[in-house]
Design a protein around this nucleic acid. Structure first.
Lengths: 222, 222
DNA sequence: GTCTATAAGATGATAGAC
DNA sequence: GTCTATCATCTTATAGAC
């Protein structure tokens, strides 16, 4: 058979993927052009079309690769998180590191572009789904042990957490001090939820009863 | 004196402002060009530069005007909100209506563009600050009456709510069903907070003591 | 104030030499 | 696989007629 190098072994391809992700992270969706990406990768502009056909397909491949790479770093930590406190700790660390790495910014740009471009939207959906997959198991485990078991939908909470992080990221890009202020308030709220979770059994049962009553009103009129 | 019509009375100016806001809402920051906006407004492209000098300044003016206009509709409702339940109800309504009007999408696009464009970032900061001004009084009043008084910073909570709404909006643009799922989970969480807030005085004091202990550890080592 | 025409440059994408 | 050169089209912005 002919020598067919694995796709990932192609150095030009890899340089373009990295450059596309970096451009999205640093210059945003508006700065993303074939020429910019190629210049950053140090290769000729025409190679983008040779390797990926269109700029949009390069972006798609770059974002998928970036998400796979960063998710791998967190798989073990998510798997080890059982309690709300654990999950909050992982979330804090993930936010700090992914922020520094620019991956949340990349996601935010992808989603902003996806509002009016179905191809980018599909890429964004895929990336979100991958992160949510990782989060989901941990959130489900955590909820199962908590006072909120059966009251809050795990998948919905996972999506809500993702949405919240993305909003904070966008905020941080235009107003860092306010965003950090919001983040620290979120941590206070996290502490609060943790405390509620540690309430004595009597209080927990009261909470659950009230919650069920509120969400599932009896069929007969009161 | 010469006849100098009020700036808002200029029909071309007004058409351009509306068209710029609509373009941002529908086509996003990537679709925003002088030609697109002018075509939508039904006027010549050169008039953008005559009236606003640059496209960026038109966008700035359009977003400020749009935010002023929509805030005016909510001032009374925010002013009337005292409890957490009130605020949640206003938030729900605001989210639905502003989403339908496309104003949250406009903000999200503004912030996405602002990540790499200081002029857009300044516009985004201004718009966010205006919304937060409106929210802040209501959040402060609500917190003051709640079990969390003194435990959660009102300004931080306001910023957190804004960030969360923006994240949900971005999410909805690429994955509507997941975003709605997340939104309904948020409403469940809102109910939960409300219930905690209605706990008997004993439970509230326990909560406050635990929270203070966690956030402000004594200086002497345990 | 509004238009046409145009400058000056960026963009996605392709053809074809090497 | 990689390059140069190029197309057609888009962009912001300006000059000048009306």
């Amino acid at each position: 058979m002919t020598a067919r190098p694995a796709p990932h072994a192609d150095p030009t391809r890899a340089r373009l993927l990295d450059a596309a992700a970096d451009t999205l992270r640093e210059d945003g969706i508006t700065g993303l052009s074939a020429r910019h990406v190629a210049a950053r990768a140090g290769v000729n502009q025409a190679l983008i079309f040779y390797h990926f056909d269109t700029v949009a397909q390069l972006v798609d491949a770059a974002c998928r690769a970036a998400v796979e790479a960063s998710i791998r770093d967190y798989r073990d930590r998510f798997a080890a998180a059982d309690t709300f406190a654990d999950l909050l700790a992982v979330g804090r660390e993930l936010h700090e590191r992914e922020r520094a790495a620019g991956n949340v910014a990349m996601m935010a740009q992808l989603m902003a572009g996806g509002q009016s471009n179905e191809q980018l939207a599909a890429t964004a959906r895929y990336c979100l789904a991958r992160w949510n997959d990782e989060l989901d198991d941990a959130v489900t485990r955590m909820l199962a042990r908590s006072a909120l078991a059966g009251l809050i939908d795990p998948a919905g909470l996972t999506e809500l957490i993702s949405a919240g992080f993305l909003g904070l990221e966008l905020y941080e890009g235009v107003d860092p001090s306010s965003a950090r202020h919001a983040m620290s308030t979120l941590e206070h709220l996290g502490d609060l939820i943790e405390i509620v979770d540690e309430l004595p059994a009597v209080a927990r049962r009261t909470l659950q009863t009230k919650m069920r009553r509120r969400r599932r009103p009896p069929r007969s009129a009161r």
